[in-house]
Simulated scan of single mutants.
Amino acid sequence: MNRPPNNTKAQAGVMLLEALIGILIFSLGILSLVALQATSIQLTSDAKYRTDASLLANRLIGQMWASGLTPAALETAFESGGDQYNAWLADVQGIDGLPGVVAASSGIDSTLPVVNVFNDGRVEITLFWRTPGMPLTGETTTTSCVVSRHCHRVVSQIVRNP
């Protein structure tokens, strides 16, 4: 009678250990995929905000071109506080506009768009926005784009042919 060698006790639990290591590797892969998806969703929403800011700025530049006004009249109508600026600002703050665009108040930094029109017809439009998780304070002045803040700056030249 041939008996197999008695090695079964030496290998007891090896299969369980292999299964646990396999489950660990599989779990790490799934967690990595979940983290990758969360990052891609955040980057997609950031890209949407940048695209919306670009479209809103280009819309204002189009309104400036279509108005036929001189640079001095453009400054009066379209710079911050002008009647055309206020109409455009309603679009920026509307449902399809940028999130978190508000005037400065107690404890909240301003994220209102800044429009500068110069005598040579040059126009600078700077839009700011807050993503849903951003704090309401701790940002720098609204006249410049810095790394810690979400902004989009457009510079254009509006000149009429004589």
Rank of each mutant, 00 (worst) to 15 (best):
W88P: 03
S106Q: 14
T76R: 10
G82E: 02
L112K: 08
V92E: 00
G100W: 09
G82Y: 00
I108P: 09
M64T: 04
G107D: 14
V114I: 07
P113W: 00
E79Y: 02
Q84T: 08
A104R: 06
S105F: 06
D91P: 09
V101F: 04
V115S: 00
T111W: 07
G81W: 01
L89F: 02
V102T: 15
V115Q: 02
W88N: 04
T111F: 12
G100R: 11
V115R: 03
Y85Q: 02
W65N: 14
S80T: 15
G100F: 11
L112F: 08
S110W: 04
V102R: 13
N86P: 05
P99K: 07
D109Q: 11
T76D: 11
L89M: 01
Q84E: 14
S80A: 11
V101D: 05
Y85I: 04
I95K: 12
W65A: 13
Q93M: 04
G94W: 03
S106T: 15
V102E: 15
S105I: 06
M64L: 04
D96I: 04
T76G: 10
D91K: 10
D83Y: 11
L98V: 02
S105V: 08
L112A: 12
I108L: 11
L98H: 01
L74D: 03
G82K: 00
A77R: 13
Y85L: 05
T76W: 07
S110L: 06
E79I: 03
P113D: 02
M64G: 02
V114R: 03
S80M: 09
F78M: 06
A66Q: 14
G100N: 11
A87S: 15
A90C: 05
T70M: 10
F78A: 07
N86H: 04
G68Q: 09
E79C: 05
D91M: 12
A66G: 13
L69D: 14
A72P: 15
G94H: 05
P113C: 01
A77T: 12
P99Q: 09
S110A: 09
A72K: 15
A90M: 04
G82A: 00
L74N: 05
A104Q: 10
L74E: 02
D109V: 11
G107K: 13
G100L: 11
G94R: 03
S106W: 11
P113E: 02
D96G: 08
L69H: 13
F78K: 06
I95T: 15
V101R: 03
P99L: 08
Y85A: 04
S80V: 12
P71D: 03
A73L: 11
A77D: 13
D83G: 13
L69Y: 14
E79F: 01
S105A: 12
T76H: 09
D91V: 10
A77F: 09
P99A: 08
G68T: 08
V114W: 01
V101G: 06
A77I: 09
A77C: 08
V115W: 00
D91N: 13
E79V: 05
G100M: 11
F78W: 07
W65S: 13
T70K: 11
V92F: 00
P71Y: 03
I108D: 10
P71N: 03
I95C: 07
S110P: 06
N86L: 10
A87E: 15
V114E: 05
L69F: 12
I108S: 10
V114H: 02
S110M: 05
P71A: 02
L112M: 13
A72R: 14
P71S: 03
Q93W: 01
I95Y: 10
